[in-house]
Computed example of a mutant assay.
Amino acid sequence: MNKRIVVSWSGGKDGCMTLHTLIEQGYEVISLVTTVPQELERTFGHGERTEMIRLQGEALGIPVHFIECTFDSYTDKFIEAIQYLKQQYHISAIAYGDLYLDGHRQWGEKVAEAAGVVALYPLWTKEEAALEALRNYVKSGYQAVVIRVRDDVLDESWLGRQIDQSFLRDIQKTASCPMGESGEYHSYVYDGPLFAKKIQLEGEELIQLETTKKLEFKNFRLV
């Protein structure tokens, strides 16, 4: 297997650690792959503006490939996109940032097999190791902010928090998985070892959605 791959990317800490780990292992990441609902200009994963994902790609020096799809066509469009990237760039694998949810891994492996590539899960671990995974992230040098929380687990005071030592301490006092593996919280990485530039975020606005609260940024740019 050659080492040309793509990484499934939603802009958060798990994808970033996946990217970092694989580059350390000698893989060549030719693209970050992100799904977007047709005509919404926001990501499926976290509901983030596509422009914020583009900025991450620019800061990292890795192009982003957006997959336009609907909820019903999500899997088929994902497979088609990976097949296209395999044909165009001769990739051999797609990497995911999942930690321990078997259903997520089964879907990812099914998609990879249908597209004719290998599924990589460099962060895969056991549920009880999630706290150690968060410790590893905090020590990694990457900087991320919490941009979304589930109302039934975390309140709005968690929005805008940096994922650092104090976050590591406090998340253990909640019912959340330390890594937010079930969507208890989502993050946005704006700086770190692989970033050539930092993403500056300004103008925070809290938005209440159906079952979650989200932090929007009115201004964002590379510095």
Rank of each mutant, 00 (worst) to 15 (best):
M1C: 06
N2G: 13
R4H: 07
I5Q: 05
G11K: 10
D14C: 06
C16G: 00
M17H: 09
T21L: 07
G26K: 06
I30S: 00
T35Q: 03
L40S: 15
L40R: 15
E41D: 14
F44I: 05
H46V: 09
E48D: 10
R49H: 13
E51I: 02
E51R: 15
R54I: 03
G57D: 03
G57S: 04
A59R: 06
L60Y: 04
P63T: 10
H65F: 15
F66N: 02
I67R: 04
E68S: 13
D72G: 11
S73Y: 12
T75D: 07
K77Y: 05
E80F: 00
Y84G: 03
H90C: 05
Y96P: 04
G97T: 12
D98I: 03
Y100T: 06
Q106C: 11
Q106N: 13
G108S: 12
E109S: 11
K110N: 12
E113P: 03
V118A: 11
P122R: 14
W124D: 02
A129K: 13
E132K: 14
R135Q: 09
N136H: 13
Y137A: 01
K139G: 09
Y142E: 02
Q143D: 07
V146P: 02
V146Y: 03
V153G: 02
W158T: 04
G160F: 10
Q162P: 02
I163N: 00
I163L: 13
Q165Y: 10
Q165G: 00
S166E: 12
L168A: 04
L168I: 10
A175Y: 11
C177K: 08
G183A: 04
E184Q: 08
Y185K: 08
H186S: 02
H186K: 00
Y188K: 06
Y188D: 02
G192A: 06
P193D: 11
L194T: 09
F195M: 03
K197I: 00
K198T: 15
K198V: 05
K198L: 06
E202M: 11
Q208F: 12
Q208K: 15
L209I: 12
T212F: 02
T212S: 11
E216T: 10
F220P: 08
R221K: 14
